[in-house]
Design a protein around this nucleic acid. Structure first.
Length: 257
DNA sequence: ATGGCTACGATCCGTAGA
């Protein structure tokens, strides 16, 4: 199974790029974030026409997550059980025996802000939710925009970012709490080049300078991690005209034996 | 120097992202 995640930053703006990328990369499953679109305006027909079933939790203007799959999606669940939230940030579905969760973790805006407190609360709720999912599904994949750069090597300029939102110690502790559930950062299962990122600021020629952060991740349960053969970031879509500020991240899994 | 893009939904600027 080829599994991908991509924060598209408006699916209506990015639809042509998404369709092109799906045609080329041919992922079996892709988790999308920041649809910025409600269900009624989601381009379901265009995606079904190229063979993808869609499950989404949509919202006008902000947030919004989806899972697209070339095979049927079962047991779709929106949100985090027991965590009331207006913001549409989580959707889960089962595909070919794999429990897939698409997450758009809060940005947090600034350390100490209300949004930062919400981010940490949200991560705590996610952790409990994933612990429950993991108890039911040994084959669990959690993919999305985590808005956390786990380590300094995931940051283009750790000195400049020190203590800032996305890298602050409480956020990294929240990330490690997910790993403590037995989830593995698929990207770090393999030897990787230095300075690989998944997001670059639109401003200040961030992409041209490779001034980025690695904040989009595919987490895999131990059973899936053992079946993982590669994990990469595809920078190609970020080079196009009018790109998303995020690049797709991929993980390939061997078929169940 | 705390800016700089981009998208949205409201208008011709404010909010949010990261």
């Amino acid at each position: 199974m080829k599994l991908a995640t991509w924060n598209v930053n408006s699916i209506r703006v990015r639809l042509p790029q998404l369709l092109d990328w799906l045609a080329g990369a041919k992922p079996d499953v892709i988790c999308l974030q920041e649809l910025k679109t409600e269900e009624a305006k989601f381009p379901r027909a265009d995606l079904e026409a190229i063979g993808y079933a869609c499950a989404l939790s949509g919202q006008k203007t902000y947030n919004g997550v989806a899972i697209l799959s070339r095979t049927p999606l079962a047991d779709v669940v929106e949100g985090i059980a027991g965590f009331a939230d207006e913001q549409k940030r989580v959707i889960a579905a089962t595909v070919q025996g794999v429990r897939v969760v698409s997450v758009y973790c809060p940005n947090g805006q600034a350390v100490g802000s209300d949004k930062y407190a919400y981010k940490l609360r949200w991560f705590a709720a996610l952790k409990d939710n994933l612990a429950a999912e993991r108890a039911i599904h040994p084959r669990l994949a959690v993919a999305g925009d985590f808005n956390v750069a786990p380590e300094d090597r995931d940051v283009h300029d750790p000195k400049a970012w020190e203590g800032q939102v996305h890298v602050s110690e409480p956020e990294r502790a929240a990330w490690r709490a997910l790993l403590a559930l037995g989830l593995k950062d698929s990207f770090r299962l393999f030897e990787q080049p230095e300075k690989v990122y998944s997001w670059w600021d639109y401003r200040m020629m961030g992409f041209r300078r490779n001034a980025g952060l690695r904040i989009d991740h595919v987490l895999l349960s131990e059973e899936l991690a053992r079946a993982c053969t590669s994990s990469t970031v595809d920078k190609a879509p970020r080079k196009l005209e009018r790109p998303s500020d995020h690049a797709p991240v991929l993980a390939e899994l061997r078929a169940e034996s």
